[in-house]
Design a protein around this nucleic acid. Structure first.
Length: 121
RNA sequence: UGAGUUAGCUGAACAGUCGCUGUUUUAUCGUAAGGAUAAAAGAGAGGAAAGUCCGGGCUUCAUAGGGUAGAGUGCUAGGUAACUCCUAGGAAACGUGAGUUUACGGAUAGUGCCACAGAAAAUAUACCGCCUGUUAAAGGGUAAGGUUGAAAUGGUGCGGUAAGAGCGCACCGCGCAAUUGGCAACAAUUGUGGCAGGGUAAACCCCACUCGAAGCAAGGCCAAAUAGAGAAACAAUGUGUUACCCGCACAGUUUCUGGGUAGGUUGCUAAAGCUAUGAGGUGACUUAUAGCGUAGAUGAAUGACUGUUUUUAACAAAACCCGGCUUAUAGGCUAACUCUUUUU
RNA sequence: GGCUGCGUAGCAAAGUGGUUAUGCAGUGGCCUGCAAAGCCAUCUACACCAGUUCGAUUCUGGUCGCAGCCU
Protein backbone atom coordinates (compact mmCIF):
# COMPACT_ATOMS: atom_id res chain seq x y z
CA UNK A 1 0.00 0.00 0.00
CA UNK A 2 2.78 2.38 0.85
CA UNK A 3 5.18 1.31 -1.84
CA UNK A 4 2.59 1.42 -4.61
CA UNK A 5 0.69 4.63 -4.76
CA UNK A 6 -1.46 3.82 -7.78
CA UNK A 7 -2.06 0.08 -7.49
CA UNK A 8 -5.53 -1.53 -7.48
CA UNK A 9 -5.36 -4.92 -5.70
CA UNK A 10 -8.37 -7.10 -4.82
CA UNK A 11 -8.39 -5.85 -1.25
CA UNK A 12 -9.50 -2.40 -2.38
CA UNK A 13 -12.63 -3.76 -4.10
CA UNK A 14 -16.01 -4.64 -2.72
CA UNK A 15 -16.34 -8.38 -3.27
CA UNK A 16 -19.27 -9.95 -1.43
CA UNK A 17 -22.99 -9.28 -1.41
CA UNK A 18 -22.82 -8.43 2.28
CA UNK A 19 -20.33 -5.62 1.69
CA UNK A 20 -22.57 -4.19 -1.01
CA UNK A 21 -25.59 -4.36 1.26
CA UNK A 22 -23.83 -2.30 3.90
CA UNK A 23 -23.27 0.49 1.40
CA UNK A 24 -26.84 0.36 0.06
CA UNK A 25 -28.29 0.45 3.56
CA UNK A 26 -27.44 3.97 4.66
CA UNK A 27 -25.43 5.77 1.99
CA UNK A 28 -24.24 9.28 1.29
CA UNK A 29 -25.35 10.00 -2.27
CA UNK A 30 -23.84 12.02 -5.06
CA UNK A 31 -25.38 11.96 -8.51
CA UNK A 32 -25.53 13.73 -11.84
CA UNK A 33 -26.90 12.79 -15.26
CA UNK A 34 -24.25 10.11 -15.90
CA UNK A 35 -23.58 8.36 -12.56
CA UNK A 36 -25.02 7.78 -9.13
CA UNK A 37 -22.43 7.22 -6.37
CA UNK A 38 -23.17 5.77 -2.95
CA UNK A 39 -20.59 5.96 -0.17
CA UNK A 40 -20.10 5.06 3.49
CA UNK A 41 -17.20 5.26 5.98
CA UNK A 42 -15.31 2.01 6.62
CA UNK A 43 -12.99 0.69 9.35
CA UNK A 44 -9.86 0.30 7.19
CA UNK A 45 -7.26 2.91 6.43
CA UNK A 46 -7.88 2.75 2.67
CA UNK A 47 -10.86 3.20 0.34
CA UNK A 48 -12.72 0.49 -1.53
CA UNK A 49 -14.66 0.55 -4.82
CA UNK A 50 -17.64 -1.44 -6.10
CA UNK A 51 -19.25 -1.30 -9.53
CA UNK A 52 -22.89 -1.89 -10.44
CA UNK A 53 -23.40 -1.33 -14.15
CA UNK A 54 -26.84 -2.70 -14.99
CA UNK A 55 -27.42 -4.50 -18.28
CA UNK A 56 -30.74 -2.72 -18.50
CA UNK A 57 -29.10 0.71 -18.60
CA UNK A 58 -26.06 -0.10 -20.76
CA UNK A 59 -27.01 -2.62 -23.42
CA UNK A 60 -23.80 -3.75 -25.09
CA UNK A 61 -21.08 -5.69 -23.30
CA UNK A 62 -18.39 -3.58 -24.98
CA UNK A 63 -19.82 -0.38 -23.53
CA UNK A 64 -20.24 -1.90 -20.08
CA UNK A 65 -16.61 -3.01 -19.98
CA UNK A 66 -15.39 0.38 -21.19
CA UNK A 67 -17.33 2.21 -18.49
CA UNK A 68 -16.03 -0.12 -15.79
CA UNK A 69 -12.45 0.34 -16.93
CA UNK A 70 -12.83 4.08 -16.95
CA UNK A 71 -14.22 4.15 -13.43
CA UNK A 72 -11.45 1.89 -12.13
CA UNK A 73 -8.77 3.95 -13.82
CA UNK A 74 -10.14 7.16 -12.38
CA UNK A 75 -10.37 5.62 -8.90
CA UNK A 76 -6.87 4.19 -9.17
CA UNK A 77 -5.28 7.55 -9.99
CA UNK A 78 -7.16 9.55 -7.36
CA UNK A 79 -7.48 7.10 -4.46
CA UNK A 80 -4.74 8.85 -2.44
CA UNK A 81 -7.10 11.79 -1.94
CA UNK A 82 -9.75 9.49 -0.41
CA UNK A 83 -9.15 8.36 3.15
CA UNK A 84 -11.41 5.50 4.26
CA UNK A 85 -14.72 5.14 2.44
CA UNK A 86 -16.54 2.40 0.53
CA UNK A 87 -18.00 3.61 -2.78
CA UNK A 88 -20.49 1.98 -5.17
CA UNK A 89 -20.86 3.46 -8.65
CA UNK A 90 -24.11 3.01 -10.56
CA UNK A 91 -24.38 3.88 -14.25
CA UNK A 92 -27.40 5.67 -15.65
CA UNK A 93 -29.22 5.08 -18.89
CA UNK A 94 -27.52 7.52 -21.27
CA UNK A 95 -23.96 6.95 -20.07
CA UNK A 96 -22.79 4.91 -23.05
CA UNK A 97 -23.41 7.65 -25.63
CA UNK A 98 -21.37 10.35 -23.85
CA UNK A 99 -17.71 11.14 -24.74
CA UNK A 100 -15.06 9.85 -22.37
CA UNK A 101 -13.62 13.22 -21.39
CA UNK A 102 -16.96 14.38 -19.98
CA UNK A 103 -17.31 11.22 -17.91
CA UNK A 104 -13.79 11.52 -16.54
CA UNK A 105 -14.38 15.09 -15.38
CA UNK A 106 -17.68 14.05 -13.82
CA UNK A 107 -16.00 11.22 -11.89
CA UNK A 108 -13.20 13.48 -10.63
CA UNK A 109 -15.77 15.86 -9.16
CA UNK A 110 -17.62 13.01 -7.48
CA UNK A 111 -14.55 11.70 -5.66
CA UNK A 112 -13.84 15.10 -4.10
CA UNK A 113 -17.48 15.68 -3.21
CA UNK A 114 -17.82 12.36 -1.41
CA UNK A 115 -14.54 12.83 0.45
CA UNK A 116 -15.70 16.19 1.83
CA UNK A 117 -19.13 14.93 2.85
CA UNK A 118 -17.89 11.77 4.54
CA UNK A 119 -15.32 13.64 6.55
CA UNK A 120 -17.92 16.08 7.81
CA UNK A 121 -19.96 13.22 9.33
C1' U B 1 -12.48 -0.17 -70.46
C1' G B 2 -16.81 -0.94 -67.66
C1' A B 3 -20.15 -4.34 -65.17
C1' G B 4 -20.22 -8.74 -62.51
C1' U B 5 -19.75 -14.22 -60.46
C1' U B 6 -17.26 -17.61 -57.24
C1' A B 7 -13.55 -18.97 -53.57
C1' G B 8 -10.34 -17.20 -49.83
C1' C B 9 -7.21 -13.83 -46.57
C1' U B 10 -6.90 -9.55 -43.17
C1' G B 11 -9.78 -7.26 -39.05
C1' A B 12 -4.21 -0.93 -37.71
C1' A B 13 1.12 -1.20 -36.41
C1' C B 14 5.51 0.22 -33.39
C1' A B 15 8.06 2.39 -28.86
C1' G B 16 7.80 4.20 -23.68
C1' U B 17 5.40 5.00 -18.47
C1' C B 18 1.55 3.45 -14.85
C1' G B 19 -2.08 -0.45 -13.75
C1' C B 20 -5.20 -5.60 -13.92
C1' U B 21 -5.78 -11.65 -14.16
C1' G B 22 -3.55 -16.58 -14.35
C1' U B 23 1.22 -19.64 -14.85
C1' U B 24 6.50 -20.74 -13.68
C1' U B 25 10.99 -19.66 -10.82
C1' U B 26 13.47 -17.31 -6.66
C1' A B 27 13.38 -14.88 -1.81
C1' U B 28 10.85 -13.68 2.90
C1' C B 29 6.79 -14.75 6.45
C1' G B 30 4.09 -18.85 8.09
C1' U B 31 1.87 -23.81 8.41
C1' A B 32 -0.25 -30.29 9.65
C1' A B 33 -1.52 -28.80 4.75
C1' G B 34 -3.44 -25.00 1.86
C1' G B 35 -1.38 -19.98 1.83
C1' A B 36 0.36 -14.39 2.05
C1' U B 37 3.90 -10.63 0.27
C1' A B 38 7.87 -9.03 -3.09
C1' A B 39 10.89 -9.52 -7.60
C1' A B 40 11.82 -11.59 -12.43
C1' A B 41 10.30 -14.31 -16.85
C1' G B 42 6.59 -15.42 -20.01
C1' A B 43 1.03 -15.58 -21.40
C1' G B 44 -3.76 -12.96 -21.64
C1' A B 45 -11.03 -12.06 -26.21
C1' G B 46 -13.47 -13.07 -31.86
C1' G B 47 -14.39 -13.85 -37.13
C1' A B 48 -18.37 -13.65 -35.71
C1' A B 49 -16.70 -14.54 -28.81
C1' A B 50 -23.41 -12.58 -30.74
C1' G B 51 -28.40 -15.05 -31.74
C1' U B 52 -29.34 -19.83 -28.91
C1' C B 53 -31.53 -22.16 -34.42
C1' C B 54 -29.52 -27.44 -34.76
C1' G B 55 -25.95 -31.59 -33.46
C1' G B 56 -22.46 -33.85 -30.02
C1' G B 57 -19.10 -34.39 -25.65
C1' C B 58 -19.68 -34.02 -20.21
C1' U B 59 -22.91 -34.38 -15.63
C1' U B 60 -27.25 -35.82 -13.00
C1' C B 61 -32.05 -38.11 -12.83
C1' A B 62 -32.47 -45.75 -8.83
C1' U B 63 -32.12 -47.54 -16.25
C1' A B 64 -33.07 -45.68 -20.92
C1' G B 65 -38.12 -51.94 -20.98
C1' G B 66 -42.89 -52.08 -24.08
C1' G B 67 -47.13 -49.45 -26.24
C1' U B 68 -49.81 -44.88 -27.47
C1' A B 69 -49.30 -39.82 -28.13
C1' G B 70 -45.87 -35.88 -29.49
C1' A B 71 -41.69 -33.62 -32.12
C1' G B 72 -38.33 -33.56 -36.20
C1' U B 73 -36.41 -34.91 -41.05
C1' G B 74 -37.87 -36.05 -46.35
C1' C B 75 -34.34 -36.62 -54.60
C1' U B 76 -29.57 -40.04 -54.74
C1' A B 77 -24.63 -41.38 -53.15
C1' G B 78 -20.88 -40.20 -49.79
C1' G B 79 -18.24 -37.35 -45.43
C1' U B 80 -18.52 -36.91 -40.06
C1' A B 81 -18.41 -38.23 -33.05
C1' A B 82 -23.20 -36.38 -34.74
C1' C B 83 -26.58 -33.22 -37.37
C1' U B 84 -31.91 -30.06 -39.91
C1' C B 85 -24.59 -29.43 -41.49
C1' C B 86 -21.01 -30.24 -45.63
C1' U B 87 -19.36 -32.46 -50.53
C1' A B 88 -20.47 -34.62 -55.38
C1' G B 89 -24.39 -35.82 -58.65
C1' G B 90 -29.80 -35.64 -60.52
C1' A B 91 -34.32 -32.71 -61.35
C1' A B 92 -36.91 -27.96 -61.52
C1' A B 93 -36.79 -22.50 -61.65
C1' C B 94 -33.97 -17.84 -62.65
C1' G B 95 -29.91 -15.31 -65.40
C1' U B 96 -27.12 -13.23 -72.24
C1' G B 97 -23.21 -15.71 -69.29
C1' A B 98 -19.67 -17.10 -65.32
C1' G B 99 -23.25 -19.08 -62.05
C1' U B 100 -27.31 -18.91 -58.31
C1' U B 101 -31.67 -20.82 -55.64
C1' U B 102 -34.82 -24.93 -53.97
C1' A B 103 -39.23 -27.73 -46.63
C1' C B 104 -37.28 -31.46 -53.79
C1' G B 105 -41.56 -38.34 -50.76
C1' G B 106 -47.08 -39.29 -51.65
C1' A B 107 -53.03 -35.53 -54.38
C1' U B 108 -54.73 -42.93 -58.26
C1' A B 109 -55.14 -44.60 -49.51
C1' G B 110 -58.77 -41.42 -47.30
C1' U B 111 -61.01 -36.71 -45.23
C1' G B 112 -61.31 -31.46 -45.71
C1' C B 113 -60.90 -26.45 -48.03
C1' C B 114 -60.98 -23.42 -52.68
C1' A B 115 -64.05 -16.24 -50.66
C1' C B 116 -65.91 -13.07 -54.99
C1' A B 117 -66.81 -13.93 -60.04
C1' G B 118 -68.34 -17.73 -63.33
C1' A B 119 -72.75 -22.33 -66.78
C1' A B 120 -69.54 -25.25 -63.94
C1' A B 121 -64.34 -25.28 -58.53
C1' A B 122 -64.71 -31.74 -59.05
C1' U B 123 -70.47 -35.99 -57.50
C1' A B 124 -69.70 -33.06 -62.50
C1' U B 125 -72.24 -29.76 -65.52
C1' A B 126 -74.32 -26.34 -69.95
C1' C B 127 -75.39 -19.47 -69.46
C1' C B 128 -74.53 -17.18 -74.38
C1' G B 129 -73.80 -20.42 -78.49
C1' C B 130 -73.53 -24.24 -82.88
C1' C B 131 -76.49 -28.20 -85.40
C1' U B 132 -81.15 -30.71 -85.88
C1' G B 133 -86.24 -29.96 -85.46
C1' U B 134 -90.58 -27.02 -86.37
C1' U B 135 -95.33 -22.06 -88.20
C1' A B 136 -93.27 -21.20 -83.43
C1' A B 137 -92.03 -23.84 -79.19
C1' A B 138 -90.93 -28.32 -76.65
C1' G B 139 -87.44 -32.12 -77.45
C1' G B 140 -82.67 -34.22 -79.22
C1' G B 141 -77.19 -33.93 -80.50
C1' U B 142 -72.61 -31.17 -79.22
C1' A B 143 -68.62 -28.66 -76.25
C1' A B 144 -65.40 -25.85 -81.77
C1' G B 145 -66.02 -20.43 -80.11
C1' G B 146 -67.38 -16.55 -76.02
C1' U B 147 -67.83 -14.86 -70.79
C1' U B 148 -65.33 -15.52 -65.03
C1' G B 149 -61.26 -16.55 -62.19
C1' A B 150 -55.24 -17.45 -59.09
C1' A B 151 -56.75 -22.10 -61.23
C1' A B 152 -61.50 -24.76 -66.28
C1' U B 153 -61.27 -31.45 -68.28
C1' G B 154 -54.33 -32.23 -73.03
C1' G B 155 -51.68 -28.49 -77.34
C1' U B 156 -50.88 -27.65 -82.95
C1' G B 157 -52.20 -29.29 -87.85
C1' C B 158 -54.91 -32.50 -91.17
C1' G B 159 -58.94 -35.74 -91.88
C1' G B 160 -63.88 -36.36 -90.48
C1' U B 161 -69.14 -34.47 -89.42
C1' A B 162 -75.73 -32.02 -89.82
C1' A B 163 -72.78 -29.42 -86.09
C1' G B 164 -69.01 -31.41 -83.28
C1' A B 165 -65.90 -34.59 -80.47
C1' G B 166 -58.72 -38.44 -79.32
C1' C B 167 -63.75 -40.10 -83.26
C1' G B 168 -59.05 -41.25 -86.50
C1' C B 169 -53.86 -39.90 -87.98
C1' A B 170 -48.85 -37.11 -87.45
C1' C B 171 -45.72 -34.38 -84.02
C1' C B 172 -45.41 -32.68 -78.84
C1' G B 173 -46.99 -33.64 -73.71
C1' C B 174 -48.70 -37.58 -70.18
C1' G B 175 -49.07 -42.84 -68.24
C1' C B 176 -47.19 -48.00 -68.63
C1' A B 177 -43.52 -51.70 -70.21
C1' A B 178 -38.78 -53.26 -72.13
C1' U B 179 -33.60 -52.37 -73.38
C1' U B 180 -29.04 -49.57 -72.71
C1' G B 181 -25.85 -46.30 -69.45
C1' G B 182 -25.27 -45.26 -64.13
C1' C B 183 -23.90 -47.98 -57.14
C1' A B 184 -28.33 -44.84 -57.20
C1' A B 185 -31.44 -40.54 -57.99
C1' C B 186 -32.14 -40.33 -63.09
C1' A B 187 -31.30 -40.03 -68.43
C1' A B 188 -31.64 -41.86 -73.56
C1' U B 189 -33.98 -45.14 -77.12
C1' U B 190 -37.96 -48.36 -78.64
C1' G B 191 -42.82 -50.15 -78.14
C1' U B 192 -47.66 -49.42 -76.38
C1' G B 193 -52.19 -46.99 -74.25
C1' G B 194 -55.69 -43.18 -76.04
C1' C B 195 -56.55 -39.01 -71.94
C1' A B 196 -56.85 -41.56 -67.38
C1' G B 197 -58.26 -36.01 -65.86
C1' G B 198 -57.59 -28.91 -61.29
C1' G B 199 -54.97 -26.80 -56.94
C1' U B 200 -53.66 -27.23 -51.79
C1' A B 201 -49.71 -31.99 -47.69
C1' A B 202 -45.23 -24.64 -44.56
C1' A B 203 -54.49 -28.37 -44.22
C1' C B 204 -55.44 -33.05 -41.48
C1' C B 205 -53.02 -37.16 -42.98
C1' C B 206 -50.23 -41.78 -45.30
C1' C B 207 -45.26 -43.90 -45.98
C1' A B 208 -39.93 -44.24 -44.50
C1' C B 209 -36.25 -42.89 -40.89
C1' U B 210 -34.68 -40.49 -36.11
C1' C B 211 -35.60 -38.87 -30.95
C1' G B 212 -35.50 -40.75 -22.62
C1' A B 213 -35.39 -35.90 -19.88
C1' A B 214 -32.91 -31.86 -17.88
C1' G B 215 -29.01 -28.72 -18.25
C1' C B 216 -22.25 -26.37 -15.43
C1' A B 217 -27.29 -21.64 -11.84
C1' A B 218 -25.94 -29.57 -14.20
C1' G B 219 -23.44 -32.01 -10.38
C1' G B 220 -19.50 -33.29 -6.36
C1' C B 221 -16.84 -31.95 -1.70
C1' C B 222 -15.91 -28.87 2.82
C1' A B 223 -17.57 -25.55 6.57
C1' A B 224 -21.41 -22.89 9.17
C1' A B 225 -26.42 -22.51 10.69
C1' U B 226 -30.42 -24.87 12.41
C1' A B 227 -35.52 -27.38 14.41
C1' G B 228 -37.57 -29.37 15.71
C1' A B 229 -42.71 -28.54 16.89
C1' G B 230 -48.15 -28.17 16.27
C1' A B 231 -52.58 -29.19 13.19
C1' A B 232 -55.04 -31.77 9.10
C1' A B 233 -55.45 -35.53 5.11
C1' C B 234 -54.15 -40.29 2.73
C1' A B 235 -51.79 -44.94 3.67
C1' A B 236 -57.66 -49.45 0.13
C1' U B 237 -51.99 -45.27 -0.75
C1' G B 238 -48.32 -41.76 -1.99
C1' U B 239 -43.86 -40.36 -4.63
C1' G B 240 -40.31 -40.92 -8.80
C1' U B 241 -39.60 -42.46 -14.01
C1' U B 242 -41.55 -34.21 -16.14
C1' A B 243 -47.52 -36.13 -21.92
C1' C B 244 -50.45 -40.92 -20.79
C1' C B 245 -50.90 -46.38 -19.74
C1' C B 246 -48.43 -50.89 -18.41
C1' G B 247 -44.15 -52.20 -15.95
C1' C B 248 -40.22 -51.04 -12.35
C1' A B 249 -38.10 -48.71 -7.85
C1' C B 250 -38.67 -46.46 -2.94
C1' A B 251 -41.49 -46.13 2.20
C1' G B 252 -44.05 -43.00 4.81
C1' U B 253 -45.94 -38.84 1.87
C1' U B 254 -48.51 -34.15 1.19
C1' U B 255 -50.61 -29.43 2.88
C1' C B 256 -50.94 -25.42 6.49
C1' U B 257 -48.88 -22.37 10.85
C1' G B 258 -44.68 -19.81 12.51
C1' G B 259 -38.87 -19.55 12.16
C1' G B 260 -34.07 -19.53 9.45
C1' U B 261 -29.51 -20.08 5.91
C1' A B 262 -27.37 -19.45 1.10
C1' G B 263 -19.92 -18.87 2.23
C1' G B 264 -15.71 -21.48 0.11
C1' U B 265 -13.83 -25.07 -3.20
C1' U B 266 -14.24 -28.25 -7.38
C1' G B 267 -16.35 -28.93 -12.18
C1' C B 268 -12.23 -25.29 -15.46
C1' U B 269 -9.50 -26.41 -19.73
C1' A B 270 -4.65 -31.07 -23.48
C1' A B 271 -8.86 -30.51 -26.97
C1' A B 272 -13.37 -35.19 -32.16
C1' G B 273 -6.64 -29.30 -30.68
C1' C B 274 -3.46 -26.14 -34.03
C1' U B 275 0.58 -25.60 -37.88
C1' A B 276 3.69 -27.62 -41.88
C1' U B 277 4.86 -31.46 -45.40
C1' G B 278 3.71 -36.12 -47.92
C1' A B 279 -0.03 -39.88 -49.57
C1' G B 280 -5.34 -41.33 -51.01
C1' G B 281 -9.95 -39.10 -52.94
C1' U B 282 -13.53 -35.13 -58.41
C1' G B 283 -14.65 -33.19 -53.43
C1' A B 284 -16.35 -32.86 -48.26
C1' C B 285 -12.66 -35.49 -45.78
C1' U B 286 -9.26 -39.41 -44.22
C1' U B 287 -4.36 -40.89 -42.98
C1' A B 288 1.28 -40.80 -41.86
C1' U B 289 5.40 -37.96 -39.99
C1' A B 290 7.41 -33.66 -37.54
C1' G B 291 6.68 -29.40 -34.53
C1' C B 292 3.65 -26.39 -30.93
C1' G B 293 1.64 -26.61 -25.87
C1' U B 294 -2.18 -21.51 -27.06
C1' A B 295 -7.24 -16.99 -21.63
C1' G B 296 -9.63 -19.48 -17.51
C1' A B 297 -12.03 -14.79 -14.54
C1' U B 298 -16.31 -15.16 -10.48
C1' G B 299 -18.88 -7.52 -8.55
C1' A B 300 -15.75 -10.77 -13.22
C1' A B 301 -8.96 -9.36 -16.07
C1' U B 302 -6.67 -6.30 -22.25
C1' G B 303 -7.19 -0.10 -20.03
C1' A B 304 -5.20 5.10 -19.57
C1' C B 305 -1.55 8.72 -21.18
C1' U B 306 2.54 10.30 -24.62
C1' G B 307 5.05 10.02 -29.53
C1' U B 308 5.28 8.32 -34.90
C1' U B 309 2.91 6.35 -39.39
C1' U B 310 -2.13 7.37 -42.84
C1' U B 311 -7.58 8.99 -40.53
C1' U B 312 -6.14 8.55 -33.34
C1' A B 313 -10.78 2.73 -37.87
C1' A B 314 -16.33 -1.20 -38.88
C1' C B 315 -19.30 -5.05 -36.30
C1' A B 316 -18.45 -6.12 -31.67
C1' A B 317 -16.22 -8.86 -25.27
C1' A B 318 -14.96 -15.57 -23.51
C1' A B 319 -18.04 -17.49 -18.67
C1' C B 320 -18.10 -25.83 -19.36
C1' C B 321 -16.13 -27.26 -24.26
C1' C B 322 -16.40 -28.48 -29.53
C1' G B 323 -18.84 -29.02 -34.98
C1' G B 324 -22.25 -26.32 -37.99
C1' C B 325 -26.17 -22.65 -39.37
C1' U B 326 -28.04 -17.60 -39.13
C1' U B 327 -27.41 -12.45 -38.37
C1' A B 328 -23.94 -7.69 -37.93
C1' U B 329 -19.40 -5.83 -40.22
C1' A B 330 -15.18 0.20 -42.00
C1' G B 331 -11.29 -0.31 -45.14
C1' G B 332 -7.86 -3.32 -47.84
C1' C B 333 -5.76 -7.65 -50.56
C1' U B 334 -5.34 -12.38 -53.66
C1' A B 335 -6.86 -16.09 -57.33
C1' A B 336 -10.04 -18.17 -61.16
C1' C B 337 -13.92 -17.16 -64.48
C1' U B 338 -18.07 -14.46 -67.36
C1' C B 339 -20.40 -10.56 -70.27
C1' U B 340 -19.61 -5.88 -72.74
C1' U B 341 -16.53 -2.03 -75.57
C1' U B 342 -12.15 -1.18 -78.59
C1' U B 343 -8.00 -3.18 -81.41
C1' U B 344 -5.65 -7.32 -84.00
C1' G C 1 -24.94 -18.12 -18.62
C1' G C 2 -29.36 -21.24 -19.41
C1' C C 3 -34.81 -21.96 -20.06
C1' U C 4 -39.75 -20.03 -21.32
C1' G C 5 -43.59 -16.73 -23.07
C1' C C 6 -45.61 -12.35 -25.58
C1' G C 7 -45.87 -8.20 -29.54
C1' U C 8 -53.42 -6.32 -32.74
C1' A C 9 -55.94 1.66 -32.60
C1' G C 10 -53.97 6.62 -27.51
C1' C C 11 -55.29 2.45 -23.52
C1' A C 12 -57.45 -2.38 -22.62
C1' A C 13 -59.06 -6.83 -24.99
C1' A C 14 -61.34 -10.91 -28.65
C1' G C 15 -60.48 -13.28 -33.14
C1' U C 16 -59.30 -16.13 -37.42
C1' G C 17 -56.22 -18.71 -44.48
C1' G C 18 -60.74 -14.43 -47.80
C1' U C 19 -60.06 -6.33 -46.25
C1' U C 20 -60.32 -7.42 -37.49
C1' A C 21 -65.08 -7.36 -33.44
C1' U C 22 -65.95 -4.81 -28.56
C1' G C 23 -65.24 -1.32 -24.44
C1' C C 24 -62.89 3.26 -22.59
C1' A C 25 -60.59 7.73 -24.61
C1' G C 26 -60.49 11.69 -28.81
C1' U C 27 -63.45 14.62 -32.68
C1' G C 28 -68.24 16.19 -34.75
C1' G C 29 -73.55 16.15 -34.48
C1' C C 30 -78.57 15.18 -32.04
C1' C C 31 -80.96 15.94 -27.34
C1' U C 32 -81.11 20.33 -23.23
C1' G C 33 -82.50 26.97 -21.23
C1' C C 34 -77.03 25.12 -19.99
C1' A C 35 -74.55 20.67 -18.53
C1' A C 36 -74.29 15.31 -17.21
C1' A C 37 -76.26 10.76 -18.92
C1' G C 38 -78.08 8.76 -23.51
C1' C C 39 -78.20 8.24 -29.13
C1' C C 40 -75.69 8.65 -34.04
C1' A C 41 -71.43 9.24 -37.00
C1' U C 42 -66.18 9.43 -37.47
C1' C C 43 -60.79 8.71 -36.52
C1' U C 44 -56.44 5.96 -35.62
C1' A C 45 -54.25 -0.97 -35.63
C1' C C 46 -52.29 -6.96 -36.77
C1' A C 47 -43.67 -5.21 -34.35
C1' C C 48 -40.23 -5.72 -38.91
C1' C C 49 -38.13 -8.74 -43.24
C1' A C 50 -38.49 -13.00 -46.39
C1' G C 51 -40.92 -17.74 -47.96
C1' U C 52 -45.40 -21.25 -48.84
C1' U C 53 -50.27 -20.02 -51.04
C1' C C 54 -54.55 -17.38 -56.03
C1' G C 55 -54.63 -14.71 -51.31
C1' A C 56 -50.99 -14.39 -44.74
C1' U C 57 -52.85 -10.76 -39.03
C1' U C 58 -53.16 -16.23 -39.01
C1' C C 59 -48.74 -21.22 -41.50
C1' U C 60 -42.97 -21.53 -41.72
C1' G C 61 -38.04 -19.28 -41.11
C1' G C 62 -35.14 -15.07 -39.63
C1' U C 63 -34.55 -9.98 -37.19
C1' C C 64 -35.96 -6.47 -33.35
C1' G C 65 -38.26 -5.27 -28.77
C1' C C 66 -40.58 -6.52 -23.99
C1' A C 67 -41.59 -9.65 -19.81
C1' G C 68 -40.91 -13.87 -16.56
C1' C C 69 -38.19 -18.16 -14.19
C1' C C 70 -33.52 -20.79 -12.43
C1' U C 71 -28.74 -18.29 -8.04
Amino acid sequence: MIAKQFSFPPSSRLRTAAEFQQVFKNPIKSSDEYFTLLAINNQFDYSRLGLAIAKKNVKRAVDRNLIKRMIRESFRLQQQQLTAIDIVVLARRNTASVPRVVLQKSLAKHWLKLEKRCNSF
